[in-house]
Amino acid sequence: MNYSLSELIIQYQKKTNKNDAQFAFESHFPVEKIHAIKTGKISYTPDEEKRIIRYISEHR
């Protein structure tokens, strides 16, 4: 499946039952950044996207 980063985060959180604070802490991102990515309020760098995708793929 080809998800946007926000959709990927949301799907991961549903599967693992983690809230934004837990996800942010474990993936080493500020919770405000995770909120903003999920709501589409800010853009993210290719490196940030890569780090989040890697975290999700390693912790499924």
Rank of each mutant, 00 (worst) to 15 (best):
P30Y: 06
I42V: 15
Y55C: 15
K38Q: 14
F29Y: 09
S27N: 06
I53C: 13
F25G: 05
I37P: 02
E48V: 07
K38C: 10
F25P: 01
F29P: 00
T39Y: 12
H35F: 11
K33S: 08
K33A: 09
E32T: 06
E48N: 09
T45A: 10
T39I: 08
S43E: 14
T39N: 15
K50C: 08
K38P: 05
I34F: 10
I34H: 07
T45N: 05
H28S: 12
E48R: 00
I34Y: 05
E26V: 04
I34D: 00
Y55T: 09
D47H: 12
I37Y: 00
R51V: 01
G40H: 01
V31K: 02
S27Q: 07
H35S: 10
D47R: 11
R54E: 10
S43A: 15
K41Y: 03
E26N: 10
I42R: 00
H35I: 03
I52E: 05
K50S: 15
A36R: 11
K33L: 13
K33C: 05
I53V: 11
E48A: 13
Y55I: 11
E49R: 08
K38E: 03
P46W: 04
P30T: 04
F29N: 11
S43D: 08
K50F: 14
K50I: 02
I37N: 03
I34V: 15
V31G: 00
I34C: 07
E49Y: 12
I37K: 02
E32S: 07
V31D: 00
H28I: 15
I34N: 03
Y55D: 09
S43M: 14
S43L: 07
R51E: 14
E32I: 01
E48H: 02
D47N: 10
K41A: 09
I52C: 12
G40A: 10
H35M: 05
I52G: 06
K50Q: 11
R54P: 00
T45C: 09
Y44S: 11
I53Q: 13
I52V: 11
A36L: 09
S43V: 07
G40R: 01
E32N: 04
P30G: 08
